[in-house]
């Protein structure tokens, strides 16, 4: 960006940096507590609970070891990856055409479609009607039961539509004059210009599928199908429920640490994917140099 680095601009930049630092601290300080919780050793936990400052030598990976050593962990992780990849693919394949169609102002029937779509956003039928549909289709123990009902989010579709609408019309028009059909316009003109929003919406879907525990829990009975969030949730809520505390399945780590470690493990893909997404977020997007 070509800002002239005047004195005022520098002062302004310092102000922005301070503001962002404050935000960062507000976020990080409580989050620090989660991190410490995941690494606190059992003896310190039972003595004083979760300290805010943990001496560097005391940090332990025990909770992570226990979780990852769980007999179902590898399987559940893999299931989560499959559900997420399949889910995002199906979601995007269904969402993009609808968003693009709705962004085309002069499409006959657009208003009708919009009304029908919006109606499903406002009126959510709730758990049982969806369950009846899915079991009626014999989709129990099938990943499609987890993926299809939430596959198209109206919210995401409309956000994407709004971005498509913001694209300069003349580029599309130029392509059409060159004889391109709508499919080619979408593929060659619209999508390349919409990377940030495609990544954003893709990320929204991915995070949804990655974290979702309730639908898998409803529709998947076979233990070898369950994804990571279900496994972690069972661990997470078990401690408040075990009446008969005869033996512990996890003996060397406080249950609080297991919960926190579970959360950190779920976040890991975010850390891995983020730099890749970031590249597309920082690059200038409207590469064509279009003037409005």
């Amino acid at each position: 960006m070509l800002y002239t680095k005047t004195r005022d601009a520098r002062i302004y930049q310092v102000g922005i940096a301070i503001f962002l630092t404050v935000i960062l601290l507000i976020i990080v300080i409580p989050f620090w507590q989660v991190i410490v919780t995941a690494f606190v050793p059992l003896d310190i936990y039972t003595r004083e609970g979760i300290p805010f400052f943990l001496p560097p030598t005391k940090w332990t990976l025990e909770a992570f070891k226990q979780l990852m050593g769980h007999s179902q962990f590898a399987r559940a992780l893999w299931n989560s990856v499959v559900i997420t990849v399949l889910g995002v693919t199906i979601s995007m394949t269904l969402t993009v055409p609808l968003a693009y169609g709705l962004s085309t102002r002069n499409l006959p029937g657009r208003k009708l479609i919009m009304t029908l779509v919006l109606f499903t956003y406002l009126f959510s039928p709730g758990l049982i009607p969806v369950y009846l549909l899915i079991t009626g289709m014999k989709l129990t123990n099938n990943y499609l039961a987890v993926i299809l009902p939430p596959a198209v989010s109206v919210y995401n579709t409309l956000v994407m539509m709004s971005f498509f609408e913001g694209l300069p019309e003349d580029l599309k028009e130029a392509a059409r004059l060159d004889g391109a059909n709508e499919l080619q316009v979408l593929w060659n003109v619209v999508l390349p210009l919409s990377k940030p929003i495609l990544l954003t919406i893709g990320l929204f879907y991915a995070v949804y599928f990655w974290n979702e525990f309730f639908t898998p829990l409803l529709y998947l009975n076979r233990n070898d199908l369950l994804p990571l969030p279900v496994l972690l949730r069972n661990i997470l809520i078990s401690s408040s429920l075990n009446e008969y505390v005869e033996y512990n399945a996890f003996s060397t780590s406080p249950i609080e640490s297991l919960k926190a470690a579970g959360v950190l493990i779920t976040m890991l893909p975010m850390f891995l994917i983020y730099p890749w997404i970031q590249r597309y977020f920082t690059k200038g997007t409207l590469v064509g140099g279009v003037k409005e």
Binding site: H70, S71, N221, N223, I235, S238, N242, A249
Partner: peptide, 16 residues
């Protein structure tokens, strides 16, 4: 088909 609660929830089910 048999649906039961677990005795030790966090331990998971028996292997196949």
């Amino acid at each position: 088909t048999m649906w039961l609660q677990a005795t030790v929830t966090e331990a998971g089910p028996p292997p196949d």
